[in-house]
Amino acid sequence: MIEIVRQKAGELLNQGKIKGFIAPSRENGHVAPRLFTRVEELSTLNLGDSSSEGDARYPLDKILITLHRKYPDDCFGILVRGCDQRGLYTLYRLNQLNPDRVIEVGIACSPGLAKACECLKPFPDDAVAGDPVAPEGQKAVEMVEDMDMAGRFEFWMDQFSKCVKCYGCRDICPMCFCNECSLECKDLVSKGDLPVDIPVFHLVRAMHMADRCIDCGLCEEACPSDIPLRTLYKKTGRIMDEEFGFTSGINKHEKSPLSIMGPAPDKKGP
């Protein structure tokens, strides 16, 4: 798989189609994101796998936003898994990236990773490597739904109270690009002191992610307190699907129902 990606990225660089290729790189024993600008550098290319598949993923989309702003005339290549591509589609929709200046090189995730993530599309459109597998169910969400109200309340309050308000979940999020963040608005959540306001802090973020979250799971991986944030946002995503038949980043040209003024669109979902 990695050879195909390396070859593809090399071609793009050789042909001068891209200024650089964004992907993880293994150097000095560590996997970290890198901008490859020369073909020779591609020997350290990595797919975000440190000791197991997908355990060293990074918000590559977010890095692309920074590069896009800094080099407004250049085109970049980027390694994408299903979630990264959902992120790109969402960032195109939100006018944060220009699709004409992005070339995606997609890889499909293995059944094992798809199962661990329970994401809705564990493969990108037009994958160059890997065999697309069907999405798994969403057991994590169902586990909470199976609890009664008191159980859910206890579960989430226990989880939220572990929060150290490090903002890691927001900072790693490829869909968080606002200049002013509601999580720093003192009318919503108290700023600069602990403990964090619960459940407000986490629910404000969940609301803001409603039509954005692409379920990449990086927030949960970043959270030092192991709060199951992904489950929370998966639920917001589900509500969007049930109410509006919309899933963020699944279709390239789909507008968010939350950006349309007027009567509610017809429900497509169950």
Binding site: V144, F153, M157, L203, T236, I239
Partner: peptide, 9 residues
Amino acid sequence: MLGFCGIEA
């Protein structure tokens, strides 16, 4: 979302 967290919607 509130319901999911055990708070009456």
